[in-house]
Amino acid sequence: MPFTIEAAQQLGLSVVMFLTISAYESCFTREYLDTVIDWIPGMNIRIRDLPSFSRITDPNDHMFNFTLDSAEVASKASGIIFHTFDALEVQVLDAISAMFPNLFTIGPLQLLLYQCLRWLDSKLPNSVIYVNFGIAIVVKKQQFIEVAMGLANSNHPFLWIIRPDLVTGGEEVLNHPSIGGFLTHSGWGSTIENLSAGVPMICWPFEGDQMTNCRYTYKERGIGMEINGDEDGIRNVIQKSVRELLEGEKGKQMRNKASEWKKLVVEAAAPDGPSSKNLVKLVNESLLPKEHIPAKI
């Protein structure tokens, strides 16, 4: 929230910005919006993969201007936290660090949490599809039916987190050995949590940065599939994708790749890993008064 920067400065307080989007998402600031897409430092992306609020034509759009304001005041913050880790977005983080030296990569946060469910314990390894569309996505009734029928027709068990307001979420289960895939809207929180679990994804983005996250998941990291389909045909797409992920050679390759990313995640969040070191550095350099004893993990 950019307004907190000015408030903190007036009160003489340290203030840290915590960005819940990916690092590559944050690159879409004013100086890049009118350039050729492959010129953005650290990125290789198509126009169709841009966040929805970066592709608007109305210069007065609220979300567009909110994003610009956030980027412009970021340099005044005592520190900037990205919910990511160095190995995941190394090129774009290098580019951002040149503009914002007080940047700290601290993630994934959810490694502090783990919960086992009895139902999952009864399933074979890599046999269950996990479905979660996050906290904000709303689908039409027909879309809901299509997803349900596609999952049912795949003949594989699935665990679907359904909010009361999903029609007109949960990630702790991803580490269970029975989970073999994740059908996701590609929100950044869900994406990085899934990387921690080492599970391949079926990506169905709806809005915002989800298109960008989806692109990097299947194209750059090789651990996902992209869903393209309308309301009438999406059930067949989901059915085919679930079977390919859990039964096919492509799914096996994605699981192997996802396991490699999981190792990097664990290394980043270990006590001597870069994310842990960045947390200590953030506290010592940006939050603690100079006369205090430096914090340690």
Score class of each variant (00 low, 15 high):
Ile47Val: 09
Ile47Gly: 05
Arg48Pro: 00
Asp49Cys: 13
Leu50Tyr: 08
Pro51Lys: 13
Ser52Ile: 03
Ser52Phe: 02
Phe53Trp: 08
Phe53Lys: 00
Phe53Met: 04
Phe53Asp: 02
Arg55Asp: 00
Arg55Leu: 05
Arg55Glu: 01
Ile56Cys: 11
Ile56Phe: 07
Ile56Tyr: 10
Asp58Lys: 10
Pro59Gln: 14
Asn60Asp: 13
Asn60Gly: 06
His62Asp: 03
His62Asn: 09
His62Gln: 06
Met63Asn: 04
Met63Thr: 13
Met63Arg: 11
Phe64Lys: 15
Asn65Asp: 12
Asn65Tyr: 14
Asn65Gly: 06
Leu68Phe: 05
Leu68Ile: 15
Asp69Thr: 08
Asp69Arg: 06
Ser70Trp: 02
Ser70Val: 03
Ala71Ser: 05
Ala71His: 15
Glu72Phe: 12
Ala74Phe: 12
Ala74Gln: 09
Ser75Lys: 15
Ser75Pro: 01
Lys76Phe: 12
Ser78Arg: 00
Gly79Thr: 07
Gly79Lys: 08
Ile80Ser: 10
Ile81Thr: 05
Ile81Asn: 10
Phe82Asp: 01
His83Lys: 11
His83Asp: 07
Asp86Val: 01
Ala87Gln: 13
Leu88Asp: 06
Leu88Pro: 11
Glu89Leu: 08
Val90Ser: 14
Val90Lys: 14
Gln91Thr: 09
Gln91Cys: 02
Val92Phe: 02
Val92Thr: 13
Val92Gly: 00
Leu93Trp: 00
Asp94Asn: 13
Asp94Ile: 02
Ala95Ser: 15
Ala95Met: 09
Ile96Asp: 03
Ser97Gly: 10
Ser97Thr: 15
Ala98Ile: 04
Met99Trp: 07
Phe100Asp: 00
Leu103Asn: 00
Leu103Ile: 13
Phe104Leu: 07
Phe104Tyr: 14
Thr105Ala: 10
Thr105Lys: 11
Thr105Cys: 04
Thr105His: 06
Thr105Leu: 04
Ile106Glu: 07
Ile106Asn: 10
Ile106Gly: 10
Gly107Glu: 01
Gly107Ser: 09
Gln110Arg: 04
Gln110His: 10
Leu111Phe: 01
Leu112Gln: 08
